[in-house]
Design a protein around this nucleic acid. Sequence first.
DNA 1: CGTTTCGCTTACGTTCGCGTCAACTTGTGA
DNA 2: TCACAAGTTGACGCGAACGTAAGCGAAACG
Lengths: 132, 132
Amino acid sequence: MSDELLTIRQMCDAFDVTPRTLRFYEARELIFPERRGQHRLYDRRDRARLTLILRGKRFGFSLEEIRQLLELYEPGGTNRTQIAATIDVGRQRLSDMEQQYAELRIAIEDLKLQLTDAEARLAAMSSDTTKG
Amino acid sequence: MSDELLTIRQMCDAFDVTPRTLRFYEARELIFPERRGQHRLYDRRDRARLTLILRGKRFGFSLEEIRQLLELYEPGGTNRTQIAATIDVGRQRLSDMEQQYAELRIAIEDLKLQLTDAEARLAAMSSDTTKG
DNA sequence: CGTTTCGCTTACGTTCGCGTCAACTTGTGA
DNA sequence: TCACAAGTTGACGCGAACGTAAGCGAAACG
């Protein structure tokens, strides 16, 4: 079903990214597709990670920040201090995101106001004034 | 009161940016401080714009996108089509931001889950397992 | 059998958002 | 008058996140 392996092209189509991007993320150690011969093959885990990567990017996080976060989404049980550090990173990101969430709400309301204002102004100059 | 003119340094201190940044924004036509001789002076309007610029950046908009949006916040009454275009830009941004707002909510909940999971795992390996 | 097609690597190019000089003017104070 | 601070304009530099082109191997297609 969803645990089939995808080629790089299928991945690109599915996620709307370029091959270059996928190879780049791999070089930065954000995803680890297996190699069948020379070719890369992406499994469900890779897809999940890519989803998180794109999501993280959307919120303005750098690839390095995302890389650190990704450790949280894997049961990569190393040692206690390692895990604790990862958790701290996650908490920091969470805090950032909640902050951003609040700011975004304000920005949205603000923009809405300006829009209704501008729309009113536009309506006020009813269809003449076009000729300048 | 709040309509005093600020020097570039005062602006930098107030908004935690560098002079280079302010001049750069000016070069990109995002702010237009007046010139008293050679020196730049920033008024209330400039400060308002800078606030919006920094806010926009926070949400991942490019300076060019922000520049377009800024027109919405000024009564720069040119002609109808011009204003209408600006409004369209604003509506697009608003749509983007509302989309991002929703995604951010999901991402936050998701991250929270992973965090509690990780914290549970950390607690489970109660203080031994430290030795590799 | 030649030739696309797909993918791989290597490597240089590009855009954005500034940082970092260098060199110059302008006011201010000892 | 000299120095110094604050500001100015170039110009080059830089890291992030890719784009793009060159050149190669392997597979599939007619």
